[in-house]
Computed example of a mutant assay.
Amino acid sequence: MPDGIKNIERLRKEVASNPAAHNPQSEFSAVITATSPFCRYDTDHDVYVFPITALRP
Rank of each mutant, 00 (worst) to 15 (best):
D44H: 03
S26A: 13
A16Q: 14
S36A: 15
F50Y: 14
V47T: 15
V31Y: 11
H22E: 10
V15F: 00
I52L: 15
K6V: 09
Y41S: 08
N18Q: 05
E27Q: 00
D46S: 04
I32F: 10
S26F: 11
C39D: 09
H22W: 01
E9D: 10
I8L: 12
N7Q: 14
D46W: 04
P37W: 01
D46H: 07
I32T: 03
T53Q: 09
A34F: 02
L11F: 07
A20R: 11
F28H: 11
S36W: 02
R10H: 12
P24F: 05
N23A: 04
P37C: 09
C39R: 14
Q25V: 11
V31F: 15
Q25G: 03
A16F: 12
D3Y: 00
T43D: 13
H45S: 08
P19G: 01
P19E: 08
P51E: 07
D42E: 07
S26D: 12
E14M: 10
R40C: 13
D46F: 03
E9W: 02
V31C: 13
H22G: 08
A30E: 06
V49Q: 12
R10N: 15
P2M: 00
P2R: 06
L55R: 08
P51Y: 06
V15M: 08
R10Q: 14
I5D: 03
I32D: 06
P19S: 06
I52R: 15
E9A: 04
D46L: 05
F38Y: 14
T33R: 00
A21M: 09
D46T: 05
P37L: 07
P57Q: 13
A21L: 01
P37F: 05
T35N: 10
T43A: 08
S26P: 04
R40I: 02
D44M: 01
T43N: 09
A20D: 12
P51L: 06
C39H: 09
S29Q: 11
R40N: 09
Y48P: 00
G4Y: 12
H22M: 04
A54W: 12
N18G: 00
A54E: 13
A30V: 14
E14F: 04
V49R: 10
I52D: 02
Q25L: 09
H22Y: 02
H22C: 02
E14A: 10
S26V: 15
F28W: 15
S36R: 07
V31R: 12
A20K: 13
S29N: 15
V31W: 06
K13A: 08
C39V: 12
V47Y: 09
D44P: 01
H45D: 05
K6D: 12
P24N: 07
V31D: 05
D42V: 01
P19L: 01
